[in-house]
Simulated scan of single mutants.
Amino acid sequence: MIGKTICSLVPILLIAHVIHFVGIFSTSAEYQEKYSDCEYIQTQGFDSIGPEDSVFYNKDILITMHVNLHKIFQGLDSIEIAQKGGFYAVYGISTGKLEAKKVQVKNYPDNVFLIPHGIYLRDSNYLHVINHSFYTGGERVDTFKILLDEQGQIVLEYLHFTQMAEKFNGITNDLVFLTPERFLISDWMVFSAPLSGPKDQPIWQKVLTLVIQIFKIKTTNVWDCKYVQGGLATCSKLRNSAGVMINGIAFDGKDTIAATDTADRQIKIFRLNNSNQEIELIQNLNVDQLPDNITYDPVNKQFISAGLNSVYQYLTLSPKIEKIQQNPTKKSIVDLQAKVHTIKLNPTTKQFESQLLFSSSKAVAGISGALIDESQKYLFLTSFPDKSLVVCTRRS
């Protein structure tokens, strides 16, 4: 009798677990007490879809990327159609006269697709970029030198690359450089993508990936790698970094590294020992969001994480993608919750704590990250499917 009762409860508990994971009934309140009035950065004459990752070059200039990553990874477009990725910059941040312009890329090889994902600024002069070039070059980390033209506008000069192993194809997500030769990189999926592109991913792998995520099986990691110029990067798993969906990574430039686990709603905090260069996990921080990317804010000495409110909202993206990307207005017209948290060390407890900074259902579609400029006037919101970078203004 007891055995039958337990057996009958198993499917009920399983369904309840799936519903909880997907978050079909989850809601989130609006919170715009510090930043509001969010609008798209207007661009003219170039593609601006999918500004997944952004970095500040200085107090006046932000560098971001464009590529239709959502259509690529959902198999909605072939990579030949969606591969025309690149970069653009936002100028005039310190003066309040924001203007977006396409970034010229010099000397990039014509036979290699440029499908940028994670980007990292090193030493104010170099931009390191994850590139899913698929069958034209495999998985790479490309390095560009940042130049300024006569008008003071950003120009990227391609220098070289390091090749990632085939097991990383299409699934590396974000990266930070600790030195010019040493970098950390995340893989957010258990199965690598085919060289022909995610559109050709076997169905069984997609289903099994979803099962792994629902049951929170830790199959992805942060990898500690050596940059081998023109050759294969050598990588090993960072100890205690395993997660369900390791995604964004940020570095404070000194001794603290933060990595997000999107599916597990968790942020992992690591400490870099500057004497022996070993990295150890010091805290797992639970957050009330699906943390995608994470950035470091040096002004307030805090990390900033951003993400959707629920898996269900992510699953509703594809049917809305054309409406999102062809939106003719200055503001988002779909309901997709964007949540931004600050992650800061409590000097008393010596533990990192999370605090809600911003929450809105009409700010940006498919939020991936957030950055605050040096003056604290602007909150920039990045995304993987939306039509452009979004900027929100600080409330007086």
Rank of each mutant, 00 (worst) to 15 (best):
V22C: 07
D264S: 07
F87E: 01
I269V: 13
H341Q: 14
K254W: 10
K206D: 12
N68I: 04
I63K: 01
K218R: 14
R182K: 12
S396D: 14
Y135P: 02
A259L: 05
L208K: 12
I146H: 01
N327G: 08
Y108P: 00
K320G: 06
E278H: 09
A250P: 05
R265M: 10
I203S: 13
K330Y: 04
G92A: 00
E157W: 04
T219Y: 12
V55D: 02
V391E: 01
Q153P: 00
D386N: 09
T219L: 12
N276F: 06
V18S: 02
M1A: 13
Y135A: 05
Q42F: 12
F161W: 11
P328V: 10
A370M: 04
L208I: 11
D288Y: 10
T329W: 05
Q229E: 15
I6P: 06
D110S: 15
K71C: 06
T5K: 15
L184E: 01
K102M: 10
S54E: 06
Q283S: 08
K268S: 11
P11H: 07
K254V: 13
M65R: 10
G3L: 15
S133Y: 05
K84T: 11
P291A: 11
N284M: 11
Q74E: 14
F56P: 00
I19K: 14
C225Y: 08
V211Y: 10
V311I: 15
G138Y: 08
M245R: 05
V155W: 03
P180A: 03
I214A: 11
S192P: 04
T382L: 07
I203G: 02
N173I: 05
Q337K: 15
V287K: 00
F46C: 08
K350V: 04
H160G: 12
E278C: 06
K320T: 02
Y378H: 10
K320Q: 15
Y135H: 13
V10F: 14
P328Y: 09
S375V: 02
S360P: 06
A89L: 02
N68F: 04
L156I: 09
I130P: 01
I246L: 10
I93F: 06
C235H: 01
L238P: 00
K362S: 12
S36E: 08
A193D: 09
K301H: 14
Y158K: 08
P109K: 03
K102L: 12
L379E: 04
D77L: 14
N125A: 13
E353R: 10
Q337W: 08
V22S: 07
V155M: 03
E150T: 10
L356P: 02
C392L: 06
